[in-house]
Nucleic acid binder design. Structure first.
Lengths: 208, 208
DNA sequence: TTCATTTTGTACCGCTTCGCAAAAAATTAA
DNA sequence: TTAATTTTTTGCGAAGCGGTACAAAATGAA
C-alpha cells in the first residue's frame, strides 16, 4: 500500500537510531549525569525535537531501554528455552549477556538498567520501579527454566529452583557491576562459566 | 596530657557525624543527584565549610565511604575468620551485609558503593576505581576464606575456590541491587540463606 | 503564488550546581 | 582593649540543567 505523501517539513531523525544513540549516552555516563545536551549531541536532535518526539528525559531513557530489551530478549530466550542442554543453554544465556554488556568496540558498559540507574532508584519511585521490573524479568525467565529442568529430570526433582534461579540472577547482577568496574571480558567469561558449573553441581545435574 | 586551648572561632561540626550524614544523602539519592546543598543541609555545614573540612564533592564521598568501610569491616571479618563453622560464618557475613544495606528505620539503601556509583563508574575513572576497589576488597576476603576452608577440609580440597568466592561475591552484588530495587528484607535474607546453602553444596561441604 | 501543515532551530527562562573571595563571628594571646 | 587566629557565613559568579515559546524551514495543497 502506497503511503500518502505528508505535508510539512520532512522528519530528519530516525527514531530507532536516535534511541540507540541516547542509550549509549545513558550507559556511558549514568542516568543523572547525562544531560539533554548530551542526548541532543548524540542523536543530532535539538532538545525541543527530542521532547516532541519522545517526551521528557526519563521517557527517552525508558523507551531506549524498552527497545534494548526487545533487541536482546530473543537471543536470551532462545538460549534458555530452545537449547536442549541446560548447561549449554545457561552458558549461551550468559554469553549473550556478556556480549550485551560491551559496546561494539569493547567498551565495558554493563547493563543499561542494573548498572545505570541503581544510584537513583532509592529516591525516585519511577526509576526504582524500572530497576525492579528489570530484575523481575530476569528472575522470571531463570525460574521458569529451572522449573522445567527439575520437571525434565535435568536436575534433582526436589532442587530449590527459586534459590537456583536467584543464584543465576546474582551472576547477571555481578556481571553488570564487574563490567562497569572495568573487569576484562575474558575474566567475566571465566566467572560466568565457573558460576554456571557450580550452580549445576549444587542443583544435582547429571554431569558437570 | 592537657590539650592546649586553640585560638580562633571554635569548630561547630563533628567530622564523623558530618560524614555519616553526608553518606546518608549519597545513599538515598545517588552520587550525581546529591548536590552540595543537600550535603550542606544534612551536615549543617555551609558549602565553604564542607570544602575547607573535606575537599570537593568526590572527596566528601570517598571519606564517607572509607569511614563506612572501617565501621562495617570488623563484623564481616569476625564472621569470616573467627567463627569456626564455614556455614555459620558465611551466614553471619551476609547477615551483617543485609543489616548494613538498610537504614536504622528500615529504609532499603543498598551498598554505598555498589548501589550508588555504578552509574557514574564507566565515564569517570576515579569513580570507576572506587567501585573496582570495593569489589576487589570483598573478592579478597571471600577468596581467602574459601582457601582456608579448602585447606582445613571444610570443603573439597580440590574445590574451585576462586569460582566459589566469586559466587559469594555475586550474592553480595545481588543483595545490593535488590535492596536498591526495594526487595523486602526477609526476602533478601531468604535469598542469602539459600545461596549460601547451595554454594556449600557445590563446594562439597560435609553437611548442608 | 500563497496557504496550511509538520518539523527543526533559536532564543530565552528560571532554577540548580560548584567553587571561591571576603566579611563576620568567636575564640585566645598580648 | 586590641590584635591574632581559626572557623563560619554571606554574597557572588560562571556554567549547567530541563523545558518552552516562537521563528524559520521544508514540504504538499489549493
Amino acid at each position: 500500500m502506497k503511503s500518502k505523501p505528508t505535508r510539512g517539513r520532512p522528519r530528519e531523525y530516525d527514531p530507532e537510531a536516535a534511541l540507540t544513540a541516547a542509550l549509549g549516552e545513558f550507559r556511558r555516563r549514568g542516568y543523572t549525569a547525562t544531560s539533554l545536551d548530551h542526548l541532543s549531541d548524540a542523536t543530532k536532535m535539538a532538545r525541543p525535537s527530542l521532547y516532541a518526539a519522545f517526551g521528557n528525559k526519563f521517557e527517552i531513557y525508558r523507551r531506549a531501554v524498552t527497545r534494548y530489551s526487545e533487541q536482546t530478549a530473543e537471543r536470551r530466550r532462545h538460549a534458555l528455552f530452545e537449547e536442549p542442554s541446560l548447561q549449554k543453554g545457561l552458558e549461551d544465556y550468559f554469553a549473550a549477556i556478556i556480549d550485551a554488556y560491551f559496546s561494539g568496540d569493547g567498551e565495558p558498559l554493563g547493563c543499561p538498567v542494573l548498572s545505570v540507574i541503581s544510584g537513583e532508584a532509592a529516591a525516585d519511585p519511577v526509576i526504582g520501579a524500572e530497576l525492579a521490573a528489570a530484575i523481575g524479568r530476569s528472575d522470571s525467565l531463570l525460574q521458569r527454566r529451572m522449573t522445567i529442568a527439575a520437571e525434565a529430570g535435568e536436575i534433582a526433582a526436589d532442587a530449590d529452583v527459586r534459590g537456583l534461579a536467584a543464584m543465576l540472577a546474582a551472576l547477571q547482577h555481578s556481571l553488570a557491576l564487574r563490567a562497569r568496574a572495568g573487569t576484562p571480558r575474558p575474566e567475566l567469561i571465566a566467572i560466568a562459566r565457573a558460576h554456571v558449573a557450580l550452580v549445576l553441581k549444587a542443583a544435582g545435574a547429571g554431569r558437570s
